[in-house]
Design a protein around this nucleic acid. Sequence first.
DNA 1: GTCTATAGTCGGATAGAC
DNA 2: GTCTATCCGACTATAGAC
Lengths: 226, 226
Amino acid sequence: MIGHATAPSRGEVTRESILAAAMEVFARDGFRAASTRAIARAANANQALIGYHFGNKQRLYLTVFEHIADRVETLLGPTLARIESELAPPVDGDPANARLLLDLVSGFAAMLLSDETSTWARLILNEQQRPSEAFDVLYQRVIGRVARLLTQLVARLRGRTDVTEEDRLIAITIIGQVLVFRVAHAAVLRQFGWNDIGPRQVGAIIERLQANIAAILAIDIEQLAS
Amino acid sequence: MIGHATAPSRGEVTRESILAAAMEVFARDGFRAASTRAIARAANANQALIGYHFGNKQRLYLTVFEHIADRVETLLGPTLARIESELAPPVDGDPANARLLLDLVSGFAAMLLSDETSTWARLILNEQQRPSEAFDVLYQRVIGRVARLLTQLVARLRGRTDVTEEDRLIAITIIGQVLVFRVAHAAVLRQFGWNDIGPRQVGAIIERLQANIAAILAIDIEQLAS
DNA sequence: GTCTATAGTCGGATAGAC
DNA sequence: GTCTATCCGACTATAGAC
C-alpha cells in the first residue's frame, strides 16, 4: 500500500492514523507501557478498532517496524544500491572507495539526524536492548545491510576483500560516532549550548565525521576534492 | 550502609536481595513493565515486603539508581580525580595529556563494557531515552564530569585551554565510539558473531579505540610507550 | 519483619449492535 | 468499519494476622 490512485477510504484513514499514533506512543512509552487505549486516544480512534485493523497490540507493533523499514529503504535504498554497485577493488586508501565511504556515512548521518527519524531512533534503541521479532525485521532489511556495506568498504580501503575483526571494529566505531548524537541527544544539546540539531549542526557534525574517518583510515582528504 | 561491623540482620538481607533483584528486573523490563511480583519472586521474598522496605515501586527504582551512582563513583572517582589533578598545560600532542586521555577512555570503556556494569548500562540507557528524576542525579555525578574532563583534554591536546565547538565534537565522537558497543548491543553481537562482550572483546575494543583516538588527534602512540 | 488476602485499578481482547 | 459494553487477567498497594 504505497500509493493510491484514488482517495483513501475511511478505513484506510483510520488505519493510518492508528499506525502513526502507535509509532509515537510506542516510542515514548515502550511496548509494554504503551496502552492500546492511549494509542486510540492519540489517533482519535476507537480502542476496539486496533483489534479490527491490526489483530492485536503485538501485530500493531510489528507493523510499525515494517513501516519504518519501508521508509528507510526509500530514503537510503538508492544510495546503498549505488554504492554497492560501485565498490572498487581493494587498494589502500583508494580515492574511489574513500569517496563511497564518506558518501555512505554522510547519507547515514543526514538521515539519522533528521527530525523524521527521532521517533524511530527511540523505537530502535528499545529493540537493541531487548530484541524482539521486530528487531529481526529491521536488522535484515536495514541495519545489517548498512553494516555489511560499511565493513566491506573499510576492508577494501585497508587493502583486502576479506573482512577481519579489525575491519568490523573500525566500522562499528564509525557508526558510533554518528549514533551518539541521537543516543545522547539531550546531553549533546546541553554540552554544546545548541537548541536543536539543525542544518548548521548537521553540517559541522558531518565535516568532523569525515575528518575523523580520514584520520582513522589514513585517507588523503585533499586528494578527494574533484 | 556500606559496611557492617556485625552480621546483617534478617531484614537487611531481605532489603538487599530485593534491591539486587529490582536492579536486574528493572534493567530487563524497564520501570513500567517490571512488576513488583516479578521482583519479589527473583529476590525470593514476599511481594508485600517491597512496600515495607521501600515504600513503593517508584522509591525502589530511585534507590537502585542511588546505589549505582555510589558504586560508579567508587569505581571511576579515583581515576577522574587523578586525571583532573594531573592535567598538563596545552601543548599540541603533549605525551602527558595524551596518556591521560587514553587512560580516561580506557577506564571508561573497561567500566562500561564490564559484566558488572552491563545491568547498569541498560538501566541508564532506559533513563536516557525517557529521563526521570533518576537520570539527573547520574548525569551530574558521573556523565557530565567525564564529558567535561574529556573535552578539556582534547582541547589541550590541540594546543589550547579554551574549548571550541570542534573540541566538543571530537570529544563526543570519542564517547560515541565506546557507547555504541552498549547501545547497539544486539547489532554488534550479530555483526561479529559474538555471544557476549567478554574480556577478549573488551581488550580488542580498547586497542582499537586507542588507535582511532591517536589517529584523530595526531598522537604519536610509539612515543607513549614508557 | 514476614506473611496471606484482598481492595481498587488498569489493560487487552472481543461480542454484538448499528 | 465503527461503536459501546464487558470479560477477565494482572497489577500496586495495603490491611491485618502472626
